[in-house]
Design a protein around this nucleic acid. Sequence first.
DNA 1: CTCTCCCT
Length: 816
Amino acid sequence: MIETLPIHDVLDPLIDSLRASGRAVLQAPPGAGKTTVVPLAILQAKVSDGLIVMLEPRRLAARAAAERMAQTLGEQIGDTVGYRIRGEAKVSNKTRIVVVTEGILTRMIQSDPELSRVGTVIFDEFHERSLNADLGLALCLEITDALREDLKLLVMSATLDAEPVARLLGDAPVIASDGRSFPVQTQWLERPSRKETRFENAVADLVHRAVHETEGGILVFLPGEGEIRRVEALLKGRLPNEVALRPLFGAMDFAAQRAAITPAQSGRKVVLATSIAETSLTIQDIRVVVDGGKSRRARFDPASGMSRLVTESVTRAEATQRAGRAGRVVEGTCYRLWSKGEEGALQAFPPAEIETADLAGLALELAAWGAGPEELAFLTPPNPGSYAEAQDLLRHLNALDVDGRITEHGKVLSALPLHPRLGHMLVVAGPEAAPLAALLADRDPLGRGAPVDLALRLLAVRDFRGFSDRHSYLANRGGVERIKQEAKRLVKQSKSAVKQELSDAEMAALAYPDRIGLRRKGDAPRYVMSGGKGAIIPDGDPLCGARLIVVTELDGNVREARIRQAIQISESEVRSLFGEQIVWNEVCEWSKRDRQVIARKQEALGAVVLADQHWRDVPSDVMAQSMLAGVKELGLSWSAAAERFAKRVELVREGGEDLPEMTEAALLETLEDWLLPYLEGVKTAQDWKRFDMLEALRGRLSWEQMQRLDQAAPAHFTTPLGRKIPIEYGGVDPEISLRLQEMFGQTTHPVVGKTPLRVTLLSPAGRPVQTTMDIPGFWASSYADVRKDMRGRYPKHPWPEDPTHADPTLRAKRRR
DNA sequence: CTCTCCCT
């Protein structure tokens, strides 16, 4: 039977372009048949000598594509067409087309940098922008430029955005094909859904509506397992009896996933799925899609060296892909949980993995290749922060030297099918570490709500029956089997004869030297990790009491990560593993909590403090420097005298004189310059409160500046009695206040510079009687009224008729 | 109000 697929129409131009320019981009939507037709056409046309290698993003897809092509040729798989995926290969010396998963290509290139046996490389599903596909293409481009002009490159992509990759390929021709799918009618919300409505309720309502308006299977897209469980609970009992609810997500075991995918025998089914149903799994009897509009993705945070999950709005590309799932067999319907008006605000594409992922593996591959990321032609460059963090980690693991070049150890790690952390553990600890490496590389075989202890998982892997006898937690049997198989492969591949006899915890610590956790003081099970981050064990977990742990898995919560897996380790184990990195530090710093400078000598592994002693005889400059942080937190400590001084300086500065600024803000900015030498003996908040800044502030001024200050804004006014009283500089005008009698004999108004003082004259009891800017005027006019009034009230005090010629005094009249 | 998917 000859199948006619849309792709057949473009085969001729495609072959011609590959022959002519050696490169091409094929843009074809799902259903065009590109995956199974194009490699055979290239083989038939003899476009190149040597192998045709096609990359697939998933193992299942790689195997299936190879099987379909072998079938087309009427051959067995492994004859002309074979495949190679992690741990599994079906190829022979007759094989001309090899379908591989994306990581395999990198391995092929690293072991044969010229790809000498390969004639054509095809990148299928390139729009998914996986890390390995991006890396593979960048390496292939370098190979064709430098070593192999005859190597043909074909990029196949489903999206409408083939231009950038065509440019990357040196303006390769873009050949577009139609797809073969059925129309899908889209239903948007009439108006944006209300913010107050909980997401799960809104989805449940929309599913309810879809059930009543349509026929056939319904596929609902939700961001994660939690949302799936909650929507399931909301829909239970609300839908007609013949409707079956089927959750579908990656952590489910294989049998349960199969049950969700197989067509319903009777009645309707509603599949509640994660993004697993976007591309990885196809469900045949789906005619309706309900898209909740959210997507959960991992994002690597270079600051913490951990990935965390974020829930974001779907992109237009994802929404299109999701809707297409309704039109695979007949025309379908797609309900979107957003309005048409909101659609324009959606991003076009999800970020490429190279922008958001942990780049440790990529950095190691590039080091093995001998090039920096800027030397290769990436469609999107690797995230610089993540790349730097990755190199840092690799240096810690001894995989890179100080100059960033790969070490012998690094070369060994790069050949292992493991994250560099786990590879390092396996190489250093020996084959004994294989089950742990396989366990840590895979999904947690224990489901939600399982305890944190890693030892439980290791028991399940080493002795499943013993585990089941002792524990009631649900373990994913299939997952455990997969881990055991993988462990066996790793033993073979590591070829290591090392026999270290390390404990499980010590092995884990080799992989995660930055995640040695020490329990903090206090009630909550909080830990500080050697890398400096905080983490918390869920309350009530049996591991809560452990003083030291190795954290093997945690979420990326920004403030305080939640520990998902950890194992207890002893102090002597930590000391024997990290002896060289454990050092004594002298720590002198301001403690916010204790409101004083704390000076200690600490024995530490990174941020983990194993021993802690009081530090006597701290050098005074070290102490003062630490106290500055306290001053910054507490703010300045103003005595009345210091405040007066600063205000005088400010007044003179406003007059145009060049003096150091003494506003609060300016002083806080320049603490190091003026305060530091005066802080000796000050180490607590109380000391600081009692501290008088006056001397330090005066110290800011040179002798000459002080002269100018005293002239322009003297500190004191000398009364006619010869007494010095402070001038207040806080208000609009400088001012003084004093007993009226003390001013007898003063015939001019007192001034500082050209500014008249505001003078408040007080009664003998110290109450204000008059404020004046003009003493002579006061004596001449209102004094008479004041005198009349005061004479009666304070008869023992002098109230002369002519104050300008009276003697100033602070006393009462002598008795006669 | 506990984590998507995939790969050497």
